[in-house]
Design a protein around this nucleic acid. Structure first.
Lengths: 239, 239
DNA sequence: CGGCCTGTTGAAACTGTTCAATTTGTGTGG
DNA sequence: CCACACAAATTGAACAGTTTCAACAGGCCG
């Protein structure tokens, strides 16, 4: 686990031997939970920050009458509740999308890490800022694109975030989301997601087999989505 | 200017005399710009971080075919480009909504402040995390609420953020946004914003006089908006 | 086998858009 | 102070994208 965290930090900032040693001494508790288990609920005041070792999770917000919006998808290597490092009260729910393995680190230990090891602090800053940037892109996506572009955009984002490269020829990934969840992430109804997915498939932009998504024509899909990966800040490294 | 910044930090964290002294020595340059001037454009790599002394600004993202989404409104006391403290390349535009007075601080100086003065660093963290929380609420708003609730929600948010209290009887504020800008912030057309505003007024939830908005019936407006200010983390202080 | 969740499809209804025209307001120059 | 220009607000009517409702098919699990 600690190695994964060190690798993650090192991908963003230069980590000295001392920095690595400090991260290696972080106390943590590994926990595996089933799909759809809540990691955190709105209003809670957690004392630990969780980090995804394996599996996918998502952030959601609910309206009083039970409508849901999924506001983020979280992948391995991401902290699920960095917010709670500095905000007492959680403003949204976090739920496991698949079976998830978490490493939970006490907030106090993480704060000490930030104080003692600026490089790690910078890496966490980058993480938080990139997620904010993704939020903004999603706002544009939901606010200004039609259903077809919206869904295509989400599929492009997943292509990049799950595969970590779009250059390597075939793009295919397991997308363990139901059409209802896709709808909740896009501000659409599951029925409409179904129709749009179908139309993307008949137009030969993607192929689906169960929950496996393959991008047949990346360049056309990207055009439909108006996808530009700048907002993911993939190459961001602090010099 | 420095006083304003110290006050801002002090509202979130305990600032020692040394901390205040450090902030007071920050180099900065004050600049006033006209409404609709760009502060920053997508793709730029700024070397300074700007802080709003007076006036309003907004963040926007554009689609390739020129559609716009306004993703944040920025008020005095907020940094307009904290992102660029740790992300090289800007992922969106920032534009003045009204005439704006900015204080620009070199990124290097701000990074030094964070290193030397953890309290200030924490305050900046809170700022960034709160903005992220607002993004999430907007995602819920645009993704899952109809035009009426959406607009009501935005008006409620402004009531709180501009007036800094909803308890003090009359709620009224100058809203220097055109209906087109409101539409771009809500994922609606200006025509529809017009109709919904009118309907909120005929239903006696608000009154408009020029760009002045008065909330006539806060409790009904809040109900229509399903507004709960938790996501603004107003009372957030680090102990 | 039965139950339940997910996916699929059709038809009707609705919310919000588009297009286009008109009015109101505001600042500028004569 | 009026005339003009221009941006913003307002209104109507037709239209489109998405939702809603409803029904059914398929797959997985106990």
């Amino acid at each position: 686990m600690t190695e994964q965290l060190i690798r993650k930090f090192a991908s963003r900032v230069a980590m000295s031997a001392a920095d690595r040693a400090h991260v290696a001494t972080l106390p943590f508790k590994v926990r595996t939970i089933d799909a759809s288990t809540y990691v955190l609920r709105e209003g809670q005041r957690p004392t630990r920050c969780a980090f995804i070792v394996e599996g996918l999770a998502y952030r959601q917000k609910l309206t009083p009458n039970g409508e849901r919006e999924i506001v983020s998808i979280l992948t391995p290597g991401e902290f699920v509740d960095l917010q709670n490092l500095f905000l007492d009260e959680s403003d949204h729910d976090i739920q496991a999308l698949t079976r998830v393995t978490l490493a939970e680190i006490p907030i106090t230990a993480l704060r000490q890490l930030i104080a003692a090891c600026p490089a790690a602090g910078h890496a966490l800053w980058i993480d938080a800022l990139v997620e904010s940037s993704i939020h903004r892109e999603w706002l544009l996506n939901i606010g200004r694109r039609n259903a077809r572009s919206r869904l295509a955009h989400l599929l492009c984002e997943f292509s990049v975030r799950f595969n970590k490269s779009t250059s390597g020829g075939d793009i295919a990934y397991e997308l363990p989301m139901t059409q209802e969840q896709l709808g909740d992430a896009l501000g659409l109804t599951p029925v409409h997601v179904n129709r749009v997915l179908k139309s993307l498939e008949t137009d030969q932009l993607i192929v689906r087999k169960k929950r496996q998504v393959s991008v047949v024509d990346w360049s056309r899909l990207r055009d439909v989505a108006e996808f530009n990966e700048r907002y993911l800040h993939l190459g961001q490294v602090i010099g």
